[in-house]
Computed example of a mutant assay.
Amino acid sequence: MRLSLLPASLLVLACHCGDADLTELDSPAQPDASASSSTGGAPTTADAGPEPEAGVTAPGWSTLLANEPAALFGVAGMSERDVWVVGADKGRGPTILHFDGSGWARIESSHRGDLWWVAPTPAGDVYFAGIEGTILRRRAGVFSRLGSPGLGKHTLFGIWAGATGDVWAVGGAAGRDGFAWRLQGDAFVPVALPLDIPRRADGELPGLLKV
C-alpha cells in the first residue's frame, strides 16, 4: 500500500506502510500521443469517445449544501449515501455534517476546535482531524479523542483511514514543521520523515497537507 503526502510546497511523497519509509513518488505518466489525430492537430470526432446512449442523462453538478454559517474545510464519503463534511467551530463545537442520501444531519461531538479533514471507514468508524493536535474517532455514535504527540501549535490538515484499521494523519505548525503520525492502538505515534525533503527558504520543513 502507498500513501501520498502533500506538503505546502506541493512536494508529493509516498509511504510504504510496512516499514514507514517515505520516498518520492514516480513522475506521472506522459499523455499518450495516440490520442491526437494522425495530422498532429486536435483530436478527431472518433478520438473523442462514444456518444452518450439515447435517454441517458450526462453527469452534471448540483448543490447539496449551501449557506452554512461556518467555513467548511473537508469532505469525504464511503458512498452517495454516506458523506461527511467538517469545518470551523463558531463557538458551539466544530461543524460536522452527515449526508445519508436524502438529507443532512448536524452531528454534535462534545469537543471544541476547527476540524480540517474527515476519514470514514467501511467498518463504520469515522476519524476527524483538526487544530491543536486533535484527532477524534466516532465509533457506534460515540466520539472519543485519541492520544497524539500533538501540542497546541499543531494543526492536522489531513487524515486517511484504510479498511484494515491503518490510520495516518499529517499536518504542521504555522505552515512549517511538517509531521506524519500513525495510529497504534488508541494513540498516534510519530513517523520519521526522510531527511532529504526539500526545505522552505528559511530551512524549515514544510507543513504536510494531505495523506
Rank of each mutant, 00 (worst) to 15 (best):
L183C: 05
D100C: 01
E80Y: 10
V189Q: 14
F157Y: 15
D114N: 12
G178H: 03
A66V: 03
I159W: 02
A192E: 15
A163K: 12
R176W: 02
L156V: 10
P120Q: 09
I96K: 00
I135P: 00
V83I: 15
G87C: 08
V126D: 07
A105T: 04
L72E: 02
D166E: 11
A180M: 11
G185W: 07
A71E: 13
P198V: 06
D125W: 07
K153A: 14
D186N: 14
V142T: 15
A76P: 00
L65P: 00
S109I: 08
A161P: 01
R145H: 06
V142P: 01
W84E: 01
F128P: 08
V126T: 11
T134D: 02
P198G: 10
A201I: 06
K90V: 09
G87K: 01
L146C: 13
W168F: 15
D82A: 11
F188R: 06
G60H: 11
V85I: 10
P194W: 04
A180S: 06
G113E: 03
E132S: 15
L183N: 03
R199K: 15
T63I: 13
T121E: 12
P190D: 14
A201S: 14
A105L: 00
I159R: 05
P122S: 07
G152W: 12
D114A: 08
V85T: 01
A70M: 11
W61Q: 14
L65A: 08
W104H: 08
G141H: 05
